[in-house]
Amino acid sequence: MFEFLVYDARKRVRGSVYLSLGMAVLAAMVIWVYPSFSSSFEEDELLDAYPPQLIELFDVETMSSLEGFLAFELYVFGWVILLGLYLAYSAASVIAEDVDRGRLDTQLAMPVSRRRLLTERFVALGVPILTVNVVVPPVVLGGAVLIGESLSTVDVLALHLLSIPYLFACAGIGICCSVVFDRGGVAQRVALAGTFALFLIESMLEGTPYEILGAATPMRYFDPNEVLLEGTVDPVGVAVLVAMTLGLLVASQAWFVRKDV
């Protein structure tokens, strides 16, 4: 058991380290610019100058505190969008790329069920998800200390913890694309476009009669502002994200098991 999980996980370590270093640099930069940013503007002076559509799109609540600034600049942009897209993209290549390059036959000729193969390789995506969420929090917390701002350790850790089911849900979108499409490039593009479309649906339809559509997107259930500014954690949201991930995984398995490869 778990041979494919171990193999894939090992293969993902190096990329995950680079990814985490990149996100750590982004976090450090955001924290580094914050003091000069906050001293140049009173309260939300700058925010008032932003087009309201943009504020709505990125779900910006306030930039007058480090929490608000981080929630927007680092977590909505870096986690909800960048990492969400990255995970969907990575997951999309898991099966489709192997079909594309003729590598899947060799795997399927081994005594392993398709269900197990898919699940183990999906779970191995936990390596980048966990690595980035382990590497970045100390950078954020340490950075806040260095610039003399207070930041709730519990809130930051909670936020990173909550991002794990969110990122797995995005990976779930990718894995679905990976079994539906036989071309790696197509699966990756559809996963990217689809995930970004879901982000747009969630943020742009807010306050419209179609707001309900946003309930079908993982972005609805992961809100950095809520965690960092209000210090609240929505357990129902976590449960929905876990359910979404499992649902997408089971659907992918069902498709993959029936599919001609």
Partner: peptide
């Protein structure tokens, strides 16, 4: 498939892996 060997017409292996890593995976499975 435990009792079966198969060689594809275009055997595809993970290009990033070494031959040894491929063998180790097959041996483990």
């Amino acid at each position: 498939k435990r009792r079966l060997g198969y060689l594809s017409d275009e055997p595809g292996f993970d290009e990033e892996a070494t031959g040894q890593e491929i063998l180790d995976l097959h041996a483990a499975v």
